[in-house]
Design a protein around this nucleic acid. Structure first.
Lengths: 228, 228
DNA sequence: CATCAATTTAAACACCTGTTTGAAATGTAC
DNA sequence: GTACATTTCAAACAGGTGTTTAAATTGATG
């Protein structure tokens, strides 16, 4: 029933590759069933609808990743001494890379899918995610707040969203970027390399000094008043 | 012919709102012509195809923005003394905000469209952009390279793309973010405020110290060898 | 007003979409 | 082997997609 060559499994495998590559909206059920070599109707038979298939594809990774993250966050929160921002962000690395045990290239595929979830218009996915895993991410916010006590809450809010954008966008366009990078710099770069390049970037960004300039109009007033 | 209520203009206006909101693939010509209150066939008559319409929507902003950026980049490159990273990034602010003269909320809409061009699978757009404006962005890379001489070229490539992701994602979800921010922190924030918050974030991120760790496997070998 | 080009229009084109149907095939238990 | 539930299958469904066609309308020029 749940063996590796069952119809369900073949559909999930085919779907995740195509979803990651061309997005949820850009992938048709016929493409999926054709790649999986199963009948078109079997998607609706086994998963109900395309929406539920999308959620099932993501759930395969989330049920592994989120408990691991929750465990790490809880561990850091229980620490006596202050955690550095680098320490907080580093706890993502190991749980993310363990997704390679779920499936070949699991880490890359999952992050790509996550990006698709934000950039494709998939309202049901956002609800699904917040409803099931919102509490885990609350712990992350708390940890970053402790690591950067000098940051006002509003500034932290924006910077965490900036960072989410960095990750999500990078993963959504991952293929293209890796292609260009390998052609231009003759470096073979995998998902692990990208994650390791992200860490110092995000650490420095989130902990950046807060700007004293609050209004552009103060420095260049002629622009701010026009055309809006 | 080119007046504000011509069929062409009405199509471009309707198209840019829908494209920004639901992406290029997620928007149908019938939605566009319905919102613009013109006949369906007029899109193909005036623009040729949907692809060319997408390019025309972006071109309206690019022909304003890119010469301005080019001019600023050239000015900075001609300077005798070294430019700081902050100075380099700051030259984006004024040209971007001037897009509000092209159209109401032009800055936000343009940045949203730019993001859609990357996340939707639009190969023709990438070609169109590189072919027409590749040389301008080469100057930017040169400027950042001069401002951060310690950064290897490949590291700089990735960080510039990370930064593009930050900007694009933030603008794509700008409406929602501003709403939450205003409700939670009682601050009124517009596109200008967001751009000003981005500057120190991106400056610190791009200039971050380069990690000495090049392979995660060096620190946790048991993970790297499994499942890939 | 007549002529000719530019534009708008409704209709149809061929193809793709997710989903449903009912019969055929397969697996399972007695 | 017979009965029953599970799964597979080809076909059709209703609706959407970008694009094309040819006729109707409009605009400008002489």
């Amino acid at each position: 029933m749940a063996n590796k060559h069952s119809t369900q499994h073949k559909i999930l495998d085919a779907a995740q590759s195509l979803f990651a590559e061309t997005g949820f909206n850009g992938t048709s059920l016929r493409q999926i069933t054709s790649l999986a070599e199963v009948n078109l109707a079997s998607v609706n038979y086994h998963f109900g609808s395309k929406k539920e298939l999308i959620q099932a594809v993501l759930q395969r990774y989330l049920v592994v990743l989120m408990p691991r993250l929750d465990q790490e966050f809880t561990r850091l929160l229980a620490m006596q001494q202050q955690n550095s921002l680098n320490q907080v962000l580093s706890v993502f690395v190991s749980p993310l890379l363990e997704l390679n045990k779920v499936h070949q290239n699991g880490t890359r595929v999952f992050l790509q899918l996550l990006g698709r979830g934000y950039t494709d218009v998939q309202g049901h996915l956002r609800w699904f995610f917040n409803h099931n895993y919102g509490r885990v991410l609350d712990k992350l916010v708390l940890l970053v707040q402790q690591a950067c006590p000098q940051l006002p809450a509003s500034e932290l809010f924006w910077r965490l969203h900036f960072s989410l954008g960095t990750v999500v966008f990078t993963m959504a366009s991952n293929e293209a970027l890796v292609e260009i990078a390998e052609a231009d710099f003759d470096e073979s770069i995998d998902i692990e390399g990208v994650i390791l390049r992200l860490l110092p970037y995000l650490s420095a960004a989130i902990a950046a000094p807060v700007s004293t300039v609050t209004q552009f109009s103060q420095t260049m007033p002629m622009l701010a008043s026009e055309g809006r």
